[in-house]
């Protein structure tokens, strides 16, 4: 048996009449980097949000590190976990958002040490030590005391990554981490993610950065209409896509990436829930 970090089985999710996930399945090995691609509305972000139970499932199961996420199983019946139990499981899963979602009332260091102090109950001194080291790791040792409003988008996103890492997660989820950034700031965030991947972090990344996927991903999964339609190594998916939908999507995206006037803005503002 292989060492599975994430196992999504037949995941269903609908927002009122809109059925966003229609039986999505995805396995991620420990230490693996999986890039989720697909058009806006294909369910990538929703699947990601289901993995740390920011969304309640309408069907299916998700296991992270062998634990059922968000639910308990009793005699074959699923029952939603207590709030405390859900929070405990989430604490081990880091998430980075498209819009950074830093806490604006706290400094960069304050953002990084908040959860370690409140959730992991670390003493302030230890949390600050670790926080400074993490901010140095993402290249922001000189911005420790700045508030988010005084940081560039790229810097904010790097603080957000440090904030997630401060909980020492076993899995990192990235939800279009560079889509809200100006093009010249994308590189600094991708570099941090690459170094994380090199260090063996298990990562699921929703992105439209195909060059990043090709370079860093162990596997690429293409989502379409709420299911994972095709997956494989970047070479297999990008160079020899099997499905017509994958081919159509890739030709649009790759054309945009190499020749398009605004390849980054094309995915700048998809609706958060449905993308």
């Amino acid at each position: 048996m292989t060492d599975l970090m994430v196992q999504c089985i037949d995941v269903h999710k609908r927002f009122r009449a809109l059925e966003v996930l229609r039986g999505a399945g995805l396995d991620v090995q420990r230490g693996e980097v999986v890039v989720l691609i697909g058009a806006s509305g294909s369910g990538k972000t929703t699947l990601l949000r289901c993995i740390n139970h920011l969304e309640v499932l309408d069907g299916g199961r998700i296991y992270v590190d062998g634990d059922l996420v968000g639910y308990r199983e009793r005699n074959g019946q699923l029952k939603e976990d207590s709030e405390r139990e859900i929070a405990r499981k989430r604490a081990a899963i880091g998430m980075v958002f498209q819009r950074f979602n830093l806490f604006p009332h706290l400094s960069a260091l304050g953002n990084v040490i908040e959860a370690p102090m409140r959730v992991r109950k670390l003493p302030r001194k230890h949390a600050e030590e670790a926080g400074r080291a993490l901010l140095a790791r993402v290249g922001l040792d000189d911005k420790v005391d700045e508030h988010p409003a005084r940081l560039s988008g790229g810097q904010q996103q790097r603080v957000a990554i440090a904030r997630a890492l401060a909980m020492e997660p076993k899995l990192m989820l990235f939800d279009e981490p560079t889509s809200a950034l100006d093009p010249e700031l994308v590189g600094e965030v991708l570099d941090v993610m690459k170094s994380l991947a090199r260090d063996g972090m298990t990562m699921i990344v929703v992105t439209h950065e195909m060059a990043f996927a090709r370079e860093v991903a162990d596997r690429v999964a293409f989502m379409d209409e709420g299911v994972v339609l095709e997956e494989g190594t970047p070479q297999a998916v990008f160079d020899h896509p099997q499905r017509e939908r994958t081919k159509a999507f890739l030709s649009k995206i790759l054309w945009g990436a190499s020749f398009g006037p605004d390849s980054h803005t094309s995915s700048r503002t998809p609706s958060r829930r449905a993308s």
Binding site: L54, R90, V119
Partner: peptide, 18 residues
């Protein structure tokens, strides 16, 4: 307050009260 702030707090393992 932006609802995304609550998502961020929850994703870090905070309870609703925290």
């Amino acid at each position: 307050v932006d609802t995304n702030q609550k998502d961020a707090a929850k994703s870090l393992g905070m309870t609703n009260i925290q």
